[in-house]
Simulated assay, not measured.
Amino acid sequence: MLAAAVPCTVNAGNFHPVLKNRAMASRHLAAASGTSVTCLTWEARALLNRIRAQFGNVEIVSTCRPGARIAGTNHLSRHASGQAIDFRVPGKKGQVVRWLIANHHNGGVMTYSDMDHIHVDIGPHFVALNRPSGRT
């Protein structure tokens, strides 16, 4: 989470120069939500840079979403901690997915049967193709 990447100490006289408390850190993360890449961990940004180097610029669908949960569960999504990216590369989805399966082993690759984007994240390695999104 951003609070771990940017210290938010609230001890008297020991304030972070930019983020003075957890409420400000939360507002900062919320401001960086959506499709911004500034909220991503360095590992997620490095992955995005590798994808862009291979396929050109990509259309970001979603990055950081504070409090995001995996659909149908109470588990936090990797989007909540800046470790996941949902994106599109129009006309190249199959090519991108094949490349990710062959080259991304430090996290997951997922596609959804009812959505057109690709999900990648940092964490345990998995591949899940054409899964239902769990959204109604």
Rank of each mutant, 00 (worst) to 15 (best):
S62C: 04
G72H: 08
L2R: 02
P90M: 02
R131T: 10
T63M: 02
W99E: 00
A12Y: 12
H105Y: 09
S133Q: 13
G134M: 10
R98K: 06
H16A: 04
Q95M: 08
K20W: 06
R52D: 00
S26W: 04
L100R: 07
S77E: 04
N49Q: 10
I122P: 01
L129F: 11
P7N: 08
K92M: 12
E59V: 15
H28W: 11
W99M: 00
D86M: 09
N11D: 10
S33D: 08
A44I: 11
H28S: 08
A80N: 03
G123P: 07
S62K: 15
A80Y: 05
S36T: 10
G107N: 03
T41S: 14
T63G: 06
F55K: 06
V6K: 10
A23T: 15
V37P: 00
Y112R: 11
V18Y: 04
I101N: 01
D121W: 11
G134Q: 07
A25P: 06
N130L: 09
H75Q: 10
S77R: 04
C64A: 12
V37W: 02
H125Y: 15
I51V: 15
F87C: 03
A25C: 15
R135V: 13
T136P: 13
M1W: 12
V10A: 12
Y112P: 12
D121H: 14
H75G: 02
A31L: 13
R27T: 11
S81T: 14
L29F: 08
A32P: 05
V58N: 02
R78P: 14
V6W: 13
G91P: 13
